[in-house]
Each structure stands twice: as structure tokens, then as C-alpha cells.
């Protein structure tokens, strides 16, 4: 397996709060190959963004991290902050979940989009600017020469989102961590995003795609991971996953898509502080048995991983 790009082993993140310790990420283990699009879907508040932040080493200051993150064999979880800054943006780029917060309100959008290009590709200011204009035009932010000079508050939500995608894909990174890159973007423009992701991927870039858009994940990804209450509960190739999700939560999640009539999973979302004993899905699981009160093993079936007693 020489083509592994990112290897995440036993990563856990806990965050102390007044109410108790939030177990945001528990024992995450997976790897992403070069050129692979790896999607992470799952419950809102289950620690997907925190996992992305843990890889980028941009966690909240009070968060505790344990585990190992390796990028091309280099342990980035052990790098100093200074060395990490070089990795960020150049090797790993990120597209943040909330574009309003991620963009600096006082700097022109064009300048912000051009920044990673200038910093990491070593191209001149004019080159970066013309590339920025081309990227904005590609995302239908027109006329680019005018729009490039505007400030984030003058953009609509979806436009800012697209500008962020332009920024994230600009500097030829090797891994892009995209946190809900398609939210707020209409279907036609979503295809532009899909197309640029595919182009970047075919140039050799891998993706960690965090998304709630099941259709987009289905169209884009090679492998899918499902997150529930801080744990990755299933990892599978795309085709078999959508044909037959194994974990009861994956099944329930796919059953809740609007196409199937919007049926929410019964029961409340679990607390991230006092996580359910044993299998974290057991309070809501239709297949639960007594053994589900102890930690389920991670079972491997035909190259798929699933954390459930049913398959043990």
C-alpha cells in the first residue's frame, strides 16, 4: 500500500466543557489513498468537522488530541506549529463549513482567493489575479473583474461558498478537506463544483469530503465512511454501500432522504458527553440485542468495515 496518502490511526479528541467532557472523536482509524475521494457522512454534531480540524491541527485550544495522523508517511500530528503551517494550504487545503466565518470580512474576496496561489505556487501577483478571475468565472461569479474586488458581505451565501471552493482548489494541494462544499449552491452550480473536484482529483489530489448531501457523496466518492456519535461506524466502497448499507444507522440515514419521504430516525440524538454504553446506536436501533450493551467489534466483510454486533 504505497499509495496511501493520509493515514489516521486511533485519533481521539475530547473537549472539556462545563457540563462534562465532549467525546467529539473516538478512536478514528482510516486511510485515504492518493487520488481518492473519501466521503464522511453522518449525524449532525457527531464530530465530522472536529475530525477534519484534528487532521489540520486547527482544533479549539482546549481540545485534547491523541492518536496519530500521517501524511505521506510523515507524522503531521507530531510536527511543530511552524512546520505544520507549511503543510496547511500547500499540501493540505481546507474548505471551511461556514464561509461567512472563514473569510476575512475586511479583505477583498479576490485577494483571499489568490492568497494560497501566491504563497504556495510561487507565481506573480498578476498571474494569481488572472487565475483568480478565471476561477471565479468558472464558478459563474460574474463579471469576475468586478466581483473579485468585492468584500465577502457583498456576496450571496452560495457565491461565497463557491469562492471558498475556488480558494481551496487553487494551489494544487495533495489533499483537500472539504467541509460541506456544496451547501447553499444550486444544483447547476453544484455540478461545476463536482466537475472541478473531479478534475483536481484526476490531477492527483485526494479528498476528504465531509457532507450531508448524500446525492453529492454518491456522485463523487470512491469510498464512504459513516460517522455516528463520534465514531466511524462503517467504511465501504461507494457501490456496495449504496446498494446495501450494513450498519443499522447507515440504513436509517439513507432511509431519511427526501426522495424516500423524509422519515427521521426515531429517538433523540445521543449525548456526546454521556455517550451510550456499548454500541452508541443501541437506544435507537431496531436490531439491538443484549450483547449490544457491550462495545461492538469492528468487523471486516469483503473489505468493508462495520462496527456492529450483527456481523460479528
Amino acid at each position: 500500500m504505497s499509495d496511501v496518502l493520509l493515514k489516521v490511526s486511533d485519533v481521539s479528541v475530547t473537549i472539556p466543557t462545563e457540563q462534562g467532557t465532549v467525546h467529539a472523536v473516538d478512536d478514528a482509524t482510516f486511510s485515504i489513498n492518493k487520488r481518492e475521494v473519501f466521503s464522511l457522512i453522518g449525524e449532525s454534531g457527531s464530530g465530522k468537522s472536529i475530525l477534519g480540524q484534528a487532521i489540520m491541527r486547527l482544533l479549539p485550544p482546549n481540545a485534547m488530541f491523541s492518536g496519530k495522523v500521517e501524511l505521506e508517511g510523515m507524522e503531521i500530528s507530531a510536527l511543530s506549529e511552524k512546520e505544520m503551517q507549511k503543510v496547511r494550504g500547500k499540501t493540505v487545503a481546507s474548505i471551511a463549513q461556514n464561509p461567512y466565518l472563514a473569510m476575512n470580512p475586511g479583505i477583498r474576496v479576490g485577494t483571499q482567493v489568490a492568497e494560497p496561489m501566491q504563497a504556495h505556487l510561487g507565481i506573480s501577483k498578476e498571474d494569481a489575479k488572472s487565475r483568480t478571475c478565471r476561477a471565479l468565472k468558472y464558478f459563474d461569479i460574474i463579471p469576475p473583474e468586478v466581483r473579485e474586488r468585492e468584500y465577502p458581505f457583498q456576496y450571496s451565501g452560495g457565491m461565497l461558498q463557491r469562492a471558498m471552493v475556488a480558494m481551496g482548489t487553487a494551489a494544487d494541494p495533495e489533499l483537500i478537506i472539504a467541509d460541506e462544499p456544496t451547501k447553499g449552491v444550486d444544483v447547476l452550480k453544484k455540478r461545476n463544483i463536482a466537475a472541478i473536484f473531479q478534475k483536481v482529483a484526476s490531477d492527483g489530489c485526494a479528498f476528504l469530503l465531509i457532507t450531508h448531501d448524500v446525492g453529492f457523496a454518491r456522485a463523487m466518492s470512491d469510498r464512504i465512511a459513516v460517522n455516528y456519535c463520534g465514531q466511524i461506524i462503517e467504511i465501504a466502497e461507494k457501490e456496495p454501500f449504496f446498494k446495501e448499507p450494513l450498519h443499522p444507522y447507515s440504513q436509517a440515514l439513507l432511509g431519511a432522504v427526501p426522495e424516500r419521504g423524509m422519515h427521521p430516525i426515531p429517538g433523540p440524538s445521543p449525548s456526546m458527553i454521556e455517550v451510550p454504553e456499548g454500541c452508541r446506536f443501541h437506544p435507537r436501533c431496531p436490531h439491538k440485542t443484549d450483547r449490544c450493551l457491550t462495545n461492538p467489534p469492528v468487523v471486516e466483510i469483503n473489505g468493508r468495515f462495520v462496527r456492529c454486533w450483527m456481523y460479528a
Binding site: G42, S44, K183, H212, A252, L253, A256
Partner: peptide, 17 residues
């Protein structure tokens, strides 16, 4: 205004219902 854009499909369905 895109009030459920950052929710997973299950929670989205829950809110809409």
C-alpha cells in the same frame, strides 16, 4: 433561508416534520 443546509438528512426531516 436554507435553514437546514448544515443538517444531516435525518435531523433535517425531523426539523421539517
Amino acid at each position: 433561508d436554507e435553514a437546514t443546509s448544515m443538517l444531516d438528512v435525518s435531523v433535517q426531516a425531523f426539523i421539517v416534520m
